[in-house]
């Protein structure tokens, strides 16, 4: 009979080790089945969490061969085929404190989430007796964001959290900030957006891991972009991230293409650029990568490009 080899990263609260297991392969099973088989037949000390078995409770996410998935809805065969292997490696999610084996701690994350005031700050129109009325259009704005099941996959896959000191908010926390910031029943967008801004909103690397791995297909990257836009509209425009985004917007209007030589100055300001970017700039000039003397001509049809900018402003005005 075909055997399935599984290595699990174990942790008993003090030490960590890799443990190999072997179970009989059965076609059409889920990863959760393999974990249950191991615990029931081979090793009752193995700790993992799962509850609903239907991708709703969000409690069973682990890493398999480096990629985080909900084990209850992941077929074993899909993983075996994807990695072309008969050995799978199970690990707890990254960027979480591990309690035991594959079980991670959520309390620190919940504490961190409080920073964005993840609750409704109600408008006056709502009452305890009658609740709130919300139209279909307004509901659509929060519909996808409220699908979050707090599984933590976005956190585990986040590239910024891999190198961050822990200040950067987990993607699901940004989702929570966004969800209340755009809720028509909430009267204090700023109370959700501003803490997101203060907690390194602009440090998102735009790697798209969160949005690509979310089992509920929430557009987390789009939400982060919307939060950035809201923060700028709330006046937070004098930071590197906002100035960088603005440089792309303006350069495209001016010449159609980016002025790479000027980009650091536009983003960091002249003084900071002079203080920090000189060795980098010299390296770039030495290899011919930047040439400050090169003149940039506007692209053909630049007038049309500017027409588009005017048009976008008109549309925004008419829709607001």
């Amino acid at each position: 009979m075909k055997k399935l080899k599984i290595t699990i990263k174990r942790y008993d609260g003090q030490k960590s080790w890799n443990q190999d297991y072997e179970i009989d392969y059965e076609k059409g099973r889920t990863v959760l089945w393999s974990l249950t088989m191991i615990r029931e037949k081979l090793d009752s000390t193995l700790v993992f969490s799962s509850a609903c078995q239907h991708g709703i409770c969000g409690s069973c996410a682990i890493k398999i061969n480096g990629k985080t998935v909900l084990v209850c809805q992941t077929p074993l065969d899909s993983m075996l085929n994807l990695f072309k292997t008969d050995r799978l490696i199970y690990e707890p999610m990254s960027h979480f404190e591990v309690i035991r084996d594959l079980a991670v701690a959520w309390e620190p994350k919940m504490e961190k989430m409080k920073k964005v005031n993840p609750w409704l700050i109600p408008i006056e129109a709502g009452t305890k007796e009658n609740g709130f009325l919300q139209g279909a259009d307004d509901f659509q704005k929060i519909s996808s964001a409220t699908d979050c099941i707090l599984c933590g996959i976005c956190t585990s896959e986040c590239n910024q959290l891999e190198v961050n000191d822990g200040t950067f908010l987990d993607p699901f926390i940004f989702n929570k900030a966004y969800r209340f910031a755009v809720d028509s029943r909430d009267c204090a967008s700023e109370d959700h957006v501003h803490p997101a801004y203060e907690n390194e909103l602009w440090k998102c690397l735009h790697c798209m891991q969160c949005v690509s791995n979310c089992p509920k297909h929430i557009d987390l990257t789009g939400e982060i972009s919307a939060l950035r836009n809201m923060s700028m509209k709330m006046g937070e425009t004098k930071n590197q991230g906002a100035r960088h985004a603005r440089a792309f917007y303006e350069d495209t209007w001016k010449k159609g293409q980016l002025n790479e030589t000027m980009l650091p100055i536009k983003t960091d300001g002249l003084l900071k650029t002079a203080a920090t970017k000189v060795p980098f700039a010299l390296r770039m000039m030495k290899t011919g990568k930047i040439n400050p003397l090169e003149l940039q001509k506007p692209v053909n049809g630049i007038k049309g490009v500017r027409e588009l900018y005017d048009y976008a402003k008109e549309v925004e005005k008419s829709e607001s």
């Binding site: 972009s225 950035r228 836009n229 700028m232 991230g241 906002a242 960088h244 985004a245 603005r246 440089a247 792309f248 917007y249 495209t252 588009l308 900018y309 976008a312 549309v315 925004e316």
Partner: peptide, 9 residues
């Protein structure tokens, strides 16, 4: 980056 500033543009 540009969509952070203006998505429609």
């Amino acid at each position: 980056h540009i969509q952070d500033y203006d998505e429609f543009t």
